[in-house]
Measured scan of single mutants.
Amino acid sequence: HDVTIHAGDKTIHVHGASEEFLRIIEQAKRDGIHEEELLRLIEELVK
Rank of each mutant, 00 (worst) to 15 (best):
A28K: 04
H6F: 03
R23N: 07
H34M: 14
I12D: 01
R40G: 03
L38V: 03
A28E: 00
R30G: 04
E37V: 11
H6L: 08
K47L: 14
I42K: 00
K47M: 13
E37M: 11
H13K: 07
T4P: 03
L45S: 02
G16M: 07
G8P: 03
E36R: 12
G8F: 04
K10F: 10
H15N: 08
G32N: 08
E36M: 14
R40P: 00
I12K: 01
D9L: 06
V46L: 15
E20D: 12
E19I: 12
L41K: 01
E44V: 06
D2M: 15
G16K: 03
T4A: 05
I42A: 03
K29F: 14
V46M: 15
E19P: 12
D2Y: 15
E36G: 11
K10Q: 09
I42S: 00
R30E: 10
R40D: 04
L41F: 06
H15P: 07
E36T: 13
I24F: 09
R40L: 10
A17V: 15
D2I: 15
V3Y: 07
V46Y: 10
R23I: 07
L41M: 10
R23K: 11
D9E: 10
I42H: 00
L22H: 04
H1D: 07
E44N: 10
I12C: 03
L45T: 02
R40F: 07
L41G: 00
H15T: 11
A7Q: 06
G16V: 07
D9P: 05
A17C: 01
K10A: 07
V3F: 12
E36F: 15
L22K: 06
L45N: 02
E43Y: 15
L39E: 04
G8L: 02
G16Y: 07
R40E: 06
H34A: 15
E44R: 11
K29C: 09
L22T: 06
A17T: 05
E43G: 08
E44I: 11
E44Y: 14
G8E: 03
T11H: 15
E20L: 09
I33N: 02
I24Q: 08
F21Y: 03
I5G: 03
Q27Y: 05
H13L: 10
H1T: 14
I24E: 03
I5K: 01
D2H: 13
R40M: 08
A28P: 00
K29R: 14
I5D: 02
H13R: 06
R30D: 04
A17E: 02
L22M: 13
S18M: 04
R23P: 01
I25S: 00
I5P: 02
I33V: 12
V14G: 01
I24H: 04
E43R: 15
E20C: 03
K29N: 07
K10N: 08
E44W: 15
A28R: 04
G8Q: 04
T4Y: 05
E26T: 08
E35H: 14
H34S: 15
Q27L: 12
R23L: 11
A7Y: 15
E26S: 08
G8A: 06
D9Y: 01
L41E: 00
L39T: 04
L38A: 00
H34C: 10
D2T: 15
H13A: 05
D2C: 15
H34R: 12
S18I: 05
E36C: 13
E37Y: 11
D2R: 13
I42F: 15
V14K: 01
L22F: 10
E37T: 10
D9S: 10
K47D: 07
V3C: 06
V14W: 11
L45W: 15
T4G: 02
H15Y: 05
I5F: 03
Q27P: 00
R30F: 11
I33R: 04
E43K: 11
K29I: 15
R30P: 00
A28Y: 14
A28G: 03
E43D: 11
G8T: 04
I12Y: 09
H1G: 10
E36I: 13
E26G: 05
T4M: 05
S18E: 03
I5M: 02
K47T: 13
D31R: 06
A28T: 01
L45R: 01
Q27W: 06
E37D: 13
G32H: 05
D2F: 15
E19S: 11
L22P: 00
G8Y: 03
S18R: 04
E20A: 10
K10G: 05
G8S: 05
H6N: 11
E35M: 13
Q27M: 11
L41I: 07
D31P: 01
I42P: 00
V3H: 05
H34Q: 14
T11A: 08
L38S: 00
L38W: 06
L45P: 00
I33S: 03
E26Y: 09
I12S: 02
H6V: 14
D31W: 10
I5L: 06
E19T: 10
V14C: 02
H1V: 15
E19M: 12
I25G: 00
R40Y: 06
I33E: 02
E43F: 15
T11S: 08
H1Y: 15
L39R: 06
E35I: 14
I25Y: 10
K47I: 12
E37N: 08
R23F: 09
R30K: 08
Q27C: 04
T11F: 08
I33P: 01
T11N: 07
K29Y: 13
L39Q: 05
L39D: 01
H34Y: 09
G16D: 10
L45G: 02
F21W: 13
L38M: 07
E43H: 11
V3W: 02
D9H: 07
T4S: 06
T11G: 05
D31M: 13
H13D: 05
F21N: 02
H34G: 15
G32Q: 05
V14E: 01
R30S: 11
E19F: 12
I12L: 08
K47W: 11
K10M: 12
Q27T: 08
G16C: 02
T4V: 15
A7K: 02
I42V: 12
G32K: 05
A17G: 04
H1N: 12
R30C: 02
I24A: 11
I25V: 11
H34V: 13
E36V: 13
E19A: 13
E37A: 15
H34F: 11
I12G: 01
G16P: 02
H13G: 02
H1Q: 13
T4I: 15
L22E: 04
H6S: 13
D31L: 12
D31K: 06
H15I: 14
V46H: 06
E37C: 10
V3N: 04
H15W: 07
H15L: 11
I5T: 01
E20V: 05
F21G: 01
K10D: 03
E20S: 10
Q27D: 09
G16F: 11
